[in-house]
Structure formats: structure tokens, C-alpha cells
Write a protein that binds this DNA or RNA. Structure first.
Lengths: 114, 114
DNA sequence: CGCTTGCTGAACCATGTGGTTCACCTTATG
DNA sequence: CATAAGGTGAACCACATGGTTCAGCAAGCG
């Protein structure tokens, strides 16, 4: 079983659009902190913090190269996050089918599903 | 495409172990705020806030029943979170295969994979 | 060597988060 | 009606977050 703290950090890391953007960008290949900061208009220091969060979550690994710091993806923890969601999603699927039917039946006869 | 703000809220909601616990518990069936609070030793007010966060994320729906508030799952937004992860995960899979090989080859000849 | 470039750390600030207590409102129940 | 039970809102607290500026420090470059 995956440790709770890992899920905490991974989900928290994913909850910020800037950080999701960084992940997407790193998907195209490694980048330096400066390269990551530039398109966001953010300061280096600001981006550094985001990278730190991602690194703490295990989603990126970094390496000092000369005076730059190369960042690249390490998507393994995403498997954990994915596993959590899909495990419960599957578990709930039946329940929800049943409950949806039950509740729509006993609260109001209006079909409000998208 | 799913809106960023939705992903923000869903991932943020999932980043707290108490809230993941609530989701798991609600998977077994609807519960009142009090029933959710009891096993955590938390105050009603505290749990109410967590439920609010989950509701804002669209992960639960609540309904006032008498003097209690019934909470139940609404797992649809999980699909969005899942979709985001799995989309990029698949996109990155090849890259990472390639990059892993590349980097392990050109940084150090040590296999540091768990 | 001396200057520039890229990153880093410390300090700071505003805002959000996770939790509490207390007062109150509503709904059951005797 | 009186009282208890469940939930809600406001106020408060400590601490985390997302961002900045400013002062460095290490690596390249002329």
C-alpha cells in the first residue's frame, strides 16, 4: 500500500496549475530552472520553489550542471496517485450506479445528469 | 478540455488524508457530518469544512435531512483527475523510456533504479 | 582577473488551510 | 413548551503556500 504522505505530496503538487504546467513542459524534455521560469513571467526564486515541491513529491529529479540546474520528469509517483484514484473509482462505480438510481428515484423524479 | 480550476480543486481536495478518508468512508454509503467526524475525533465544525472542500471540488454532494446533513459520493470529477494523469502519463511513457536510457548512459553507468 | 549569468538562501508579505471555541439556529423529543 | 441534538457561522490561531526582493556564490567568458 502506498504511504499516505506520498499521496499527500503528489496530489498537493498536482493541485497547482503552474506546477502541472512545469510537468507538461518537462514532458517535452529536460529544462533548466530558468527555462521553466521564463514563460511564466515568474522570478527564478519563485520557480525554484515550485520545482522543490515537485521534487519533494518525487515527480521531478534535478541535477546541477555547471551553473544551471537541469530538471527532468520522474513520473513514477503518478502511478501511485493513479492507482489510488482508479482503485476507489472502480470500487465506487457499482455503489454509485446503485445509489444514483436509488437517490434519483427517492428524491425527485428529475433526470439531472449532464 | 477540463478546466484548470476544476483540477486545482480536485487535486487539492485529494491532497489531505482526512478528506481521502472521508471519500473512502462515503464509498460504503452516505453518512452525516457527525458520522464522518466521529471516527476522526475532530469537531463537527472541523469536519464540516472538509466536507465543504470536497463539495466545492464536486466530489461529494450533500443534502440537509431534518437536522442532519447527509453526504454522499459524486465521483465524476475523479474522472477528470484521472484523465489528466493518464493522458500525460501515456504521453510521457515513451519519453521517459528514452530519457532514462539516455541519462543512465551519459551520467553514470550505475543502475540506480529501485 | 573581473564581469556577467544562473541559481540559491534568507527575509518578508499576503493569503489560504486545518483546526479550535463559542454563540446560535433548527429540528426532534418528552 | 422546554430541552437536547446536530449543524452552522464567526472569530480566532498557528502554520503552510505562493510569491516577491535582495544579497550572495559558483561557473563561464573576455
Amino acid at each position: 500500500m502506498v504511504q499516505q504522505a506520498v499521496l499527500d505530496r503528489v496530489f498537493a503538487a498536482l493541485s497547482d496549475p503552474t506546477r502541472r504546467g512545469v510537468l507538461v513542459r518537462l514532458g517535452e524534455g529536460p529544462a533548466t530552472v530558468g527555462e521553466l521560469a521564463e514563460p511564466t513571467g515568474m522570478t527564478l526564486t519563485g520557480m525554484k520553489k515550485h520545482v522543490q515541491v515537485l521534487e519533494d513529491a518525487g515527480l521531478v529529479v534535478t541535477e546541477k550542471v555547471g551553473r544551471t540546474r537541469q530538471c527532468r520528469l520522474s513520473a513514477a509517483p503518478l502511478d501511485d496517485a493513479m492507482a489510488w484514484i482508479s482503485f476507489y473509482q472502480r470500487l465506487w462505480a457499482r455503489r454509485l450506479d446503485g445509489l444514483d438510481a436509488y437517490f434519483t428515484m427517492c428524491t425527485e423524479p428529475e433526470g439531472d445528469k449532464k
